[in-house]
Amino acid sequence: MLREAESESHSIPSPLMAGRARYSAMQRQGPRPKNVTKKDAAENDDWVTCIQRIRENEDRQAFERLFGHFAPRVKGFLMKSGADEAMAEECTQDVMATLWQKAHLFDPSRASAATWIFTIARNRKIDALRKQKRPEPEDLPWGPDEEPDQADVLALQQETTQLGKAIKNLPEKQKVLIEKAYFRDLSHSEIAEETGLPLGTIKSRIRLALDRLRHAMK
């Protein structure tokens, strides 16, 4: 979905645009599956809570923590994608400003903080490097007061943690291929030709994430 006013720069990807208020659900914590370490999962929850604080209290401290963690990573991501240092710095500042301004659109039952930030950074990248806008899918028509299921939020955040681990544990060669696809503008036909692309290896992870997402969207 591309709104007129946003098309010029920070269009927010649609799966994340479900404008539902949902943060009160985050106060209740459910049990955690054993295969996710406490630290990793706690970190994801933590970023979700930070975004919630920005939305509800314009909490500068929460923003500083997110900035300290994500801004250098986003900058690294943009430089890997072909931006020079000055452009990467400027775009990262834009991305972080967008995070503050659009905090109310973040849906933790459909994306982790890192995923949401990735989508903002990707769109900013297309805008800055290619001078193009990126058409976004139409948003799903959520009810105005719909709260996300806390179980969905938890499951999604844990799946994301798992996915990150699965990528970390991939053989170096496969990891490089995925990074090439995301950072280096590998075209889809090139992706299809890269026979070594570990889509199969990580497919089970993706499929799990997919089930969670599909469930969350019902």
């Binding site: 990807p13 799966p15 900035f67 994500f70 801004a71 250098p72 990573r73 986003v74 900058k75 690294g76 991501f77 430089m79 890997k80 240092e85 990467a88 710095e89 990262t92 459909r110 994306a111 982790s112 890192a114 995923t115 949401w116 930030i117 990735f118 989508t119 950074a121 990707r122 799946e159 994301t160 996915l163 990150g164 990528i167 970390k168 995925i178 990074e179 995301y182 950072f183 990580i202 993706i206 499929r207 994430a209 997919l210 997402l213």
Partner: peptide
């Protein structure tokens, strides 16, 4: 959504460049 999560995981694991 799953592929976006993959992008998120890559940003999370991406090398930091100081602001």
């Amino acid at each position: 959504g799953a592929f976006d999560s993959l992008g998120g995981a890559l940003v999370e694991g991406s090398e930091s460049v100081e602001m």
